[in-house]
Simulated assay, not measured.
Amino acid sequence: MPRVTDRQQQTNALLDAFVVHLLAKLEADAFVNDSDSDSDSDSDNSDLGFDDDPIAEGLIESIEQLEISESFLMITTTVFPDIFRSYVQVTPECFDALVGSVQNHPVFHNNSNCQQMPVEDQVAIALYRFEHYGNAASTMKITLWAGVSYGTVKNITVRVMTAICDPRFQAMTMPWSTPAEIERAKAWVEGNSCAAWRDGWLMVDGTFVPLFQQPHHFGNTYFDQKSNYSMNVQLINRPDLTIADYGIGLPGSQHDATAWSQTQLPSKHEHLLRPGEFVWADSAYPLKSWCQAPYKECIFHIVFSHFHDFLSIIQP
């Protein structure tokens, strides 16, 4: 269902009140016309102007004020789910969950008489900016789209990033997998491989999030192996693609093994993994009893077998 903002609810209530008042006025006018039907007056009673109706004028003025204060942002992102998703790249349900997770963060509250704009508006503006790239993500473009000031866009971006990067947000929104979820993941691994590998119910890999340009501070450290400026993001997920943990904040020049060390598993694997459980990884990650890198082993055996064949040929 499309989201309905508080302003929209207030507008709908005022419109309902206006319609009820209009019907009452028409009914009263009809009663007056019936009572005067014996007269020969030719006056036109079809004028429905509200110049002398303070109630109607007040309702219309209130609706106009609400519509003016309703930013273009919320008008275009709360009508239909498809339109909403095209602007912020999440479903309305996901958006509501995200707002509920960050709305109590101290960064969105202050003791000033000038209150901040609603948290849902701030999150929507930030997501719209994150969804765009290059010039389309410029502060001026976001300002014109959202109907807010230049400084407000910058402050909103900082607030939302502060709330999302807070470890409390990660702990609240991404708790560790439940025993039932772990068992389903193991069953999938066993069904698609073999019983000996069923305890490897997690996978880890890194990805680069490209940046539009070189960052101002320590920009060279963001230059990755693909000759782009980016950030290294580590994702640990189950076979059903549900993310179980993640690591963010390191520049693109950092090796996956280094970025991986910033996540929970390397430091808390004794508490998070049961005996015998492990994580699947590629050759960029260290080989541990709880972290298996099958590609590294496969490459090693292939190279070793070719090297052994080569030795058998050159040796007499």
Rank of each mutant, 00 (worst) to 15 (best):
M1K: 12
M1R: 13
V4A: 05
R7A: 12
N12F: 08
A13N: 13
A13H: 10
L14G: 07
D16R: 13
D16C: 02
F18H: 10
L23Y: 05
A30F: 02
A30H: 03
V32Y: 01
D38Y: 11
S41W: 03
D42K: 08
S46Y: 02
G49K: 10
D52V: 04
I60Q: 12
L66D: 08
S69F: 01
P81Y: 04
S86T: 07
Y87K: 13
P92I: 04
F95I: 05
V99T: 11
G100P: 00
Q103C: 12
P106D: 14
V107L: 05
F108V: 11
S112P: 03
N113G: 15
C114S: 13
Q115T: 14
P118S: 08
D121V: 14
E131P: 00
H132D: 03
L144M: 13
W145K: 14
W145F: 15
G147V: 07
Y150W: 11
N155K: 15
N155W: 02
I156T: 11
T157H: 06
A163W: 05
I164M: 13
I164Q: 03
P167K: 09
Q170R: 09
S177H: 02
E181A: 09
I182A: 08
I182N: 01
I182Y: 06
R184M: 04
A187R: 13
W188Y: 14
G191H: 11
W197E: 07
R198T: 07
G200K: 04
D205F: 09
V209N: 00
Q213D: 12
Q213T: 13
P215S: 02
N220C: 01
Y222C: 07
V233A: 12
L235K: 02
P239I: 02
P239T: 01
A244E: 11
G249D: 11
G249V: 13
H255E: 01
D256Q: 11
W260D: 05
S261M: 09
T263V: 04
Q264F: 02
Q264W: 06
L265S: 02
P266N: 02
P275H: 09
P275K: 11
E277P: 13
W280Q: 02
W280E: 02
A281H: 09
L287C: 15
W290L: 01
I302P: 00
S305P: 00
F310Y: 14
I313C: 10
I314E: 05
I314K: 12
